[in-house]
Computed example of a mutant assay.
Amino acid sequence: MNIESDFYSFNPLYSSFLQSGVDSNDYETLCLKKGEVLYFQRFNRQGFYFIIEGLAKMELSHPTPRVIRLCKRGDMVGYGSWLVPKTENYKLMALQDTTVQFWTKDASESLQRKSTLVNQLLIEHLAQVILHKDERIASLQGETVENRVAHLLLWLAKNFGRQTAQGLLIDISLDRDCMAQLAGTIPVTLARVLTYFEQEKIILREKRKVLVLNIQELEKKTF
C-alpha cells in the first residue's frame, strides 16, 4: 500500500485536509535520511509538518540543546511557525529514514474556511498538545524519576513494541542522553533506574534496545 494512502486512513486530521480539496502547491513532501536535521525556519515561511512515516526527535537547539519529544507517524509538528513566526530555535532530527509533509499556513487557513471538520480536528489536536504539556509539567513536579522512566518505557512499548517470545521488544535505538532528557533526568540516574528494573526482571537491555519482560510490573512502577 502507498505510504500516503495508508496514512490517509490512519490520521483523521490529514484525511480532513485532503478531503477538503488541496492543490499540489499547498504542500511539499520531504524524505529525511537517518541523522538528517530539519530546521523549522528552512522554508522561510509559516506552516507545519505531518510525520508521514518514520521517527524523529524534536530538539530545542538554543540556548542549550535539549530533546523535547519524540515525533512518530501521525504527529503534527512545527506548528509554532504556523501560529508564531519565531521558531528558529527548534529542529527535527530523523532517528530513522523519515517522510514528512510541509503544509503552508495559507493552505491550512484556506481549508479551515472551507471545512468545519478541519477546524474541529485542528482544535482537538492543539488541545491535546496543551494537555500533553500540562501532564509533562505535572510529571516533572510530582513524580519520582522511577515513575517517569516507567512512563517513558510504557509509551515506547505501546508505540514501537514488537512482540517476541520473551516479551515486548522496543524496536528502536535511543541513546542514553536522549532517553534521560525525555524522562527529565540525567544519564547516570537513568542507568541506575534501568539497572534496578533489570534486577527486578521487568526489563532486559540488549545494546541500545529494551525488552519489556513484565508489562504489568512496569505499569505498577508508574505510581
Rank of each mutant, 00 (worst) to 15 (best):
M58N: 11
C31Y: 15
G74W: 01
K114W: 03
M179D: 00
P187T: 00
Y27P: 05
L190H: 02
F160A: 10
G35D: 00
E124I: 14
Y79V: 10
N147G: 06
G80A: 14
S115R: 03
H125V: 13
P85F: 13
E124T: 15
E109L: 15
Y14W: 12
I3F: 04
P12H: 03
N2Y: 10
E109T: 13
T104V: 09
T144H: 07
Q96K: 15
S9T: 15
L60Q: 06
P187K: 01
G54W: 00
L30W: 09
L169P: 03
I203W: 00
L60R: 07
L194S: 06
G78M: 03
A191D: 01
M179H: 03
P12F: 06
H132Y: 12
F50N: 11
L140I: 13
S173H: 08
L18C: 14
I68V: 09
Q19E: 13
R113H: 14
Q163E: 09
G142F: 10
I170Q: 01
R176W: 05
T87F: 12
F40P: 02
V212F: 00
D97F: 08
Y49V: 05
L117D: 05
S139P: 05
R136E: 13
T87Q: 15
N11A: 14
L152N: 03
L111W: 01
S115C: 07
T64D: 07
K114G: 12
V100L: 06
K105M: 11
A107D: 00
K105E: 06
F43G: 05
V77N: 05
S5P: 08
N89Q: 14
L126Y: 15
K72E: 12
K158L: 07
I52G: 07
L194W: 01
D171V: 04
R42H: 12
K114H: 09
Q199C: 09
F50D: 04
A183H: 02
N44P: 05
I203F: 03
K133A: 11
G35S: 05
L92T: 04
Q46K: 09
E200N: 11
F102N: 01
G142D: 14
D177R: 04
P85Q: 05
R162Y: 01
Q96A: 10
I202M: 01
K91W: 02
E36P: 06
R148T: 04
Q216N: 14
S16D: 14
N147I: 01
C71W: 02
G21K: 04
A183I: 02
K114P: 11
I130H: 06
T99F: 00
L213G: 05
M76F: 12
F50K: 07
L38S: 06
T29V: 15
V193I: 06
K220V: 08
L131K: 14
E109S: 13
L92F: 12
E109R: 07
A138P: 04
Q46W: 08
E28V: 13
D97M: 10
L117I: 13
H132Q: 15
K220I: 08
T164K: 00
I51E: 08
I52C: 07
D26N: 13
W82T: 05
D26G: 13
T195G: 02
F160K: 15
L121A: 06
F40E: 04
S9N: 13
G54D: 05
L194N: 01
L213N: 01
L70F: 06
N2W: 07
T189G: 00
P85E: 03
H151E: 15
E88A: 10
N11D: 12
T189W: 02
